[in-house]
Structures are given as C-alpha cells and as structure tokens.
Design a protein around this nucleic acid. Structure first.
Lengths: 188, 188
DNA sequence: CCCAAAAAAGGACATTTGTCCCAATGGCAT
DNA sequence: ATGCCATTGGGACAAATGTCCTTTTTTGGG
C-alpha cells in the first residue's frame, strides 16, 4: 500500500552527492499540498523520507487515492514524457524530504545515464504492475477482506494514515470503513 | 477504454520491415488465451490489429479487466524489467495480429535505439496516466454515468465487446449492467 | 436449416454500501 | 485552561448492487 523503491533512491542519493546534475533537496511539512491536478509543473520529485499521497478529486468532492508514496517513489515524472497537465494532486501525509529534478535535467539523465534509464523504466513498470492486483482485489472482495489485507501488509496503518485517507484509498466512505472495522472487531 | 498507440506501432512496423531485430509477426483467432496470469513468458507482444483484453481472475471466479488493448499497445513488456511472472492474463476479443519480440531482442533495442527507448517510456507513462482517471471515475460516479462515459468515448462499444466483458471492466455484475442500461433507455 | 450452447434480459429478494445525522473525543492555538 | 475545529464512531433509513433463477434471444457448427 505504501510503495517504495530503494534501488532508485540509493542511486539518486549517489547522483545528488556528486553534485553534478542540478538535483535539489527540499523539505515539506505534514498535510501540505505539493501538486494540484490539472496544472502544469516543471519538476520531478523523488522521496527521500516520509509519506505522501497521490490522489484525484472530482467535482462531487469525492477523492480517490491512487497510491501512498514512500521512500524512493517519484512523482511528477509522467509529465516529462508527455508534456501535459498533471493528472494527480500530491500532498504530504507526514513531513517529507525530497530530491527534485528539472524536466530538462531528468530528461538529460535518462538519455545519458543508462543505469538511471533502466531504474526509471523499472519504476514505471512497477507502478503499473502493482495496480492490477490492487484494483482486482478491491472489486473482487468485500470491504472487510480488503482491510484485513491492508493491515497484513502494513500493520500500523491505522496509526499512521487518517481514516478518511484509508477510505478514499479503498474507494469507500468513512462510514463504511468504520462499519467494517467494527465487524472485524466483533468477529475477532 | 480501448487503448491505442499509433506512434509506437508505426515505429515497430518500420523496425520489422528492416528485418534486423528478430521481430516476428503472428496471428490469433478471436477468443483465444495468449497469456495466463502467474506464469512465465519470454516474449513481448505489440498489437498490429484487433482487440485483446488484459485481465485478472481470482479464486472466486471473479474477473477484473485491466484494459482493452488496441493497435500499438504492448503486453508482456513489464516482465522484461523485473523478471517475474505475469500479473495479467491476456486473451483476444477479435482476431488479432501482433508483432513479437524476445526479451533479449526487446532489451537490446531499449539499450541501443534511443527512439525506441523514448517510445517505450512514453507508452509506460501513458498506461499509468490513463488508469488514474478511470478508477477515480469508477468509484466516484454511479454505474449509469460510467456507461454513458464509455459510450461517449467508444460509441460502438456494445456491438464489439460482450456484455460480460464490459461489466468486468467496470467492476460490476452483468445483472447490474443490464439494470443500468435499462434505466438509461427508459430515461432517454 | 436446425439444434445446442452461449449470451442477454430481467423478476424477486437479500445484502451491502451510502446518506444524513448527531454525539463524543482529541489535538491545538489563543 | 478554554474554546474551536477536525477526526472518529455510530444509529436509522434509503439507495445501489449482488445473488439466484428463469426466460428469451442470438450464434455458430453439423
């Protein structure tokens, strides 16, 4: 549920240490919006520490969380490949440390650094891979099963992530989430 | 809903015509399974013509369709980046013509052909991009709205894709799909 | 051309989930 | 400490969706 990519992080830390690629370190407080959907940005972010959420909201005020991003996850990178608006908003959940690239710098690394290129290809492939089972499970099993599954993969979920976010990740209302948690407690 | 990638197809046709990269053309009849989830394969496919579905089924027999693949869409490429089992099954919907690469050939092209590398990066980025609004919409709006939206983007949907597949794409039962179609007809 | 099998349509009922509330609790700034 | 606001928990009812079944329609092979 909270995605990570240690290999990519390690390599970017190494690039950063070399001082050559215009990579900048930044920090954000908790609960801050970093990107808003349907706007243009010119930076790629890579998380050094902390947790962010990537989400999409619609005109009904409903929010659907695409993923929780942990160490080594990038965001804002899709817009390097097809110059367009962001699809997702990104906000911090905990305090966040990131490395940032300009689009030009990121593109340049892709073209000149084969290892970087490979790591980014892998990162994109992983983002695709993990979504399939997630959505399949979400549609294929009742809410309670989904919660059990999340808690198995991420035990201190409820203490770190607000209920509303968990509900928006599963695609249900807070009411339904509470009901399901209650049901699980009763049956335990 | 039925994804396409003309730029990639055009380039691969050109590569194929050159005869140099071990690309093989193949054809499949309608309703044939090409890949099964959780198995190992050693080929990358790119669709020349026809429609395939990429789906995931669970032990309850529920099926969730990830995407419908049209001209220029690849499948089996994720396993090049992280040598693992396929997540998805792929089956033809209509008769299908494809080009196939060996993993080695695909990897070689990625490393030596900058244009190919860029096109594949873009293709992966697009696969990620399109999923966000799709799932957001699916959770955020009632079934009827989802159907209207699909029909707007793909008018002859119902004539080309079986009802069961449409339902499995939206993540509902055939019964619910019929009910929604009925509701729309009545209100029209 | 006909028949078997698949696909589509829908009735009746059960279950799940959402909506709309309101009450309780817990930080957090003043 | 006090008051305010966001978060959490849950009752009661409404609406959406699933389950189970039966009937109708379509399709493709002999």
């Amino acid at each position: 549920m909270i995605r990570k990519n240690k290999a990519l992080l390690a390599y970017v830390e190494w690039l950063y240490a070399s001082g050559k690629y215009g990579i900048v370190a930044e920090a954000y407080a908790a609960k801050r919006t970093i990107m808003e959907q349907a706007r243009r940005y010119n930076k790629v972010y890579l998380i050094k520490s902390g947790i962010a959420k990537c989400y999409l909201s619609n005109e009904n005020g409903r929010i659907f969380i695409q993923e929780f991003l942990g160490e080594g996850m990038e965001f804002g990178e899709l817009e390097v490949f097809n110059e367009q608006h962001t699809i997702c908003s990104v906000a911090t959940v905990t305090p966040l440390e990131v490395y940032t690239f300009s689009h030009a710098g990121f593109k340049n690394l892709l073209e000149t650094d084969a290892k970087f290129n490979t790591l980014v290809l892998k990162a994109l492939a992983d983002k695709i891979r993990y979504k399939a089972p997630r959505h399949s499970y979400q549609h294929g099993y009742p809410i309670e099963d989904n919660i059990v599954r999340l808690q198995a993969n991420f035990p201190d979920l409820i203490t770190v992530i607000p209920k509303k976010d968990i509900a928006n990740y599963i695609g249900i209302t807070t009411r339904s989430l509470n009901r399901a948690l209650r049901g699980l407690k009763k049956r335990a």
